[in-house]
Simulated scan of single mutants.
Amino acid sequence: MAVAFDAGASNKVSRDPILVGLWIALLVVALIWVAPFVFIIFTSLKTKAEVTSTGAFMPPVHLAFDNYSSAWNRGNFATAFLNSVVITVIKVPLGLGLSAMAAYALAKIKLPFSKLLLLLVVFGTMIPFQVMLAPIFTLVNSLGLIDTYPGVILPYIAFGVPYQVFILHGFFRGIPKELSEAALIDGASHFTIFRRIFLPVCLPVLAALLILDFVSTWNEFAMALVLLQDQHMWTLPLGLMSFQGQFSSDYGQLNAAIVMTVLPATIVYLIFQRYFVSGLTSGAVKG
């Protein structure tokens, strides 16, 4: 017993330097990631004179909260914020619902060529949307949907669904088939099984996908720039680009605009972050 105890203590001591090194590396990486956010927040609360007279990472002496109200009014962010909210609130739940139903059908319903269908869906994740901007613009323009909400929401859904189906398909495959078979024997339809059995079970995965989809939709720039040419239809990233072009020398208001743009996505992440790691891990490992 004494020998075993000494060996365990020796192993613990030998691992300590590695653990210390990992913690140091983690702290360094965290500082590198946090530093830009500290700079942006500090600068957003400084006056013009204070921005030039103090260091980048020095906290503001006098909190200039009026930078936020001035940037909001000068950049007309109210309209851009409303457009982003409408597009995101419609696109994210609709895309997740379609993805969940498609993933259930491919995983639990016997369909001819189901593997081929899944392969075609997954192939959609391999196509960068940048190379599709010109065909998408031509298609949306031919349908008369330029500068409209459907003209942006539909392409967003088309490029978001494949990845979500891939994650949810792996999760659904990991759920025992006896659950759905027993429900089918009792007379339940596939829609009832999906709604009452599979949907509650996959809520952590849906929460994780909701975070990813919300952030990517909220911050999407290139496709919105091509499909939304009317300034009154611009989303927040486009409004921020315009504001930066007009008031690039006013660093306080510019950084205040950046904070207001990223704040909603940050709040959504903080609300659902406890589901993030567990949800994606379940979808990626099971099946």
Score class of each variant (00 low, 15 high):
Ala2Arg: 15
Ala4Pro: 07
Phe5Lys: 15
Asp6His: 12
Asp6Ser: 15
Ala7Gly: 09
Ala7Ser: 13
Ala7Met: 14
Ser10Phe: 14
Ser14Lys: 15
Leu19Gly: 14
Leu19Val: 11
Ile24Val: 15
Ala25Tyr: 10
Leu26His: 07
Leu26Val: 07
Leu27Ala: 15
Val28Arg: 05
Val29Tyr: 12
Trp33Phe: 06
Val34Cys: 03
Val34Phe: 10
Pro36Arg: 02
Pro36Leu: 08
Phe39Leu: 12
Phe39Ser: 15
Ile40Pro: 01
Lys46Thr: 00
Lys46Val: 02
Ala49Asn: 14
Glu50Gln: 12
Thr52Gln: 15
Ser53Asp: 14
Ser53Arg: 15
Gly55Ser: 13
Phe57Ile: 13
Met58Gly: 11
Pro60Cys: 06
Pro60His: 06
Val61Arg: 14
Val61Tyr: 10
Leu63Met: 14
Asp66His: 10
Tyr68Ser: 10
Tyr68Thr: 07
Ser70His: 10
Ala71Glu: 08
Asn73Met: 13
Gly75His: 08
Phe77Thr: 01
Ala78Ser: 14
Ala80Glu: 09
Asn83Ser: 09
Ile87Met: 04
Ile90Ser: 00
Gly95Cys: 12
Gly95Trp: 04
Gly95Glu: 12
Ala100Leu: 07
Met101Asn: 04
Ala103Leu: 04
Tyr104Asn: 01
Leu111Ser: 08
Leu117Asp: 03
Val121Thr: 13
Gly124Asp: 06
Phe129Ile: 09
Phe129Glu: 12
Val131Tyr: 07
Leu133Gly: 04
Leu133Asp: 04
Leu133Met: 12
Ile136Gly: 02
Phe137Thr: 08
Ser142Gln: 13
Ser142Cys: 04
Leu143Cys: 05
Leu143Ser: 09
Gly144Phe: 00
Gly144Gln: 09
Thr148Asn: 03
Pro150Asp: 05
Ile153Cys: 06
Pro155Leu: 00
Pro155Lys: 01
Gly160Trp: 00
Tyr163Lys: 11
Phe166Pro: 01
Phe166Lys: 00
Ile167Asp: 01
Phe171Asp: 03
Pro176Asn: 08
Pro176Met: 10
Pro176His: 09
Pro176Asp: 03
Glu178Ala: 07
Ala183His: 07
Ala183Tyr: 06
Gly187Glu: 10
Ala188Trp: 11
Phe194Gln: 03
Arg195Gln: 11
Leu203His: 03
Pro204Ala: 03
Val205Arg: 01
Ala208Asp: 07
Ala208Arg: 09
Leu209Gln: 02
Ile211Asp: 03
Ile211Gln: 10
Phe214Val: 05
Thr217Arg: 11
Thr217Cys: 10
Trp218Cys: 02
Asn219Ile: 00
Val226Tyr: 02
Leu227Cys: 09
Leu228Ala: 05
Gln229Cys: 05
Gln231Ile: 15
Gln231Arg: 15
His232Ile: 05
Leu236Gly: 04
Gly239Asp: 02
Met241Cys: 03
Phe243Met: 06
Gln244Ser: 14
Gln246Met: 15
Gln246Leu: 14
Ser249Gln: 14
Ser249Trp: 05
Asp250Gln: 13
Gly252Ser: 07
Gly252Met: 02
Met260Ile: 09
Thr261Ser: 06
Thr261Ile: 10
Val262Asp: 01
Val262Met: 02
Pro264Ser: 10
Thr266Cys: 13
Ile267Val: 13
Val268Phe: 11
Ile271Val: 14
Phe276Met: 10
Thr281Asp: 07
Gly283Pro: 07
Gly287Met: 01
